[in-house]
Design a protein around this nucleic acid. Sequence first.
DNA 1: GAAGCGTGGCA
DNA 2: TTGCCAAGCTT
Length: 345
Amino acid sequence: MLEINEFKHDLLKWFDENQRQMPWRETKNPYYIWLSEVMLQQTQVNTVRPYYNAFIERFPTIEALSTTNEEDVLKYWEGLGYYSRVRNFHEAVKEVHNKYNGKVPDDPESFQSLKGVGPYTNAAVMSIVHNHPLPAVDGNVLRVWSRLTCNDADIAQPKTKKLFEKELQPFVETKSGDFNQAMMELGATICTPKKPICILCPVQKHCEAFAEGVVSELPVKKKKIKKKTIDYDVLYITNREGQILIRKRDTKLLNGMWEFPMFEQDTSIDAIEDELDSVITIENEPVIQTKHVFTHMTWNMKVYKAYMQKENIKPPYKWMNKNEKDTLSFSTSMTKIFTQMNQLL
DNA sequence: GAAGCGTGGCA
DNA sequence: TTGCCAAGCTT
């Protein structure tokens, strides 16, 4: 079993001397720390950096974010993915504004009750800002800890995470913020998924997997099922004024994002006209064929040019002028289509 | 407890 | 090209 004080000393010394600079490490403002943790969920540091800087510049305070409508906030998340994160964060910040007098709760139970704040984000923010003794167990820590303790439990299972949280509790009684960040930093830079750099590891002498020579076999992670594929016809519909027809999604996937109307490929013209409540002219051959890959599914899309003349469009549909593209939020697949169409036309 | 939820980088 | 991975949460 790991000797707590020696391990912590070695890890924290390394972290103090080697941690990477990040904009959110230059503040203890709980609103900023919280935002960074939400953006960093399932997202790499270098991807987050520009989004974080733009977001806090546009919404520097809880007050500023609370008084902005969702459409404008979503624009600052465009392209970052997992869009429910920003809806939950927006709602949670408004709750802080209204119920907590604009001050982020400093007790873990209140904080984790906010939308989008789970065990990890709670532990991370509460430990970094207030040194609350909570272990922040993310993907990095699951991997690092499975190696340090030479544990071959499936890290994809929730009970493994619970076990690790329990085992790590004694390590976060003091300096929990630095300890949690150091464990994640170690996982991100040294104890990486592939080709970990054990030769540079500050806690190599504490690592049971290294001692056993099985570092490359850990962690054990059950593989996910194969993803589905859906074929879509995407319609790039213009009218006499040169506007483009778009619609706002009301679905779990990409909820609230705008898109060009799209239909599964066996959908009949009649059904499409019924949905659009208008006659429509669609070209016979697609102008673009493209693929968009999500974590859990793939879209194969054929894009057709089409023409439609209809004055009274009702939500979720909308005629968009081309210069409006910069004010509305589109998923990355739609932005790519928009760019390609502009090059063709 | 398992599945759904985005995107970009990398081998 | 394909699959895996990245500071998770919700249902």
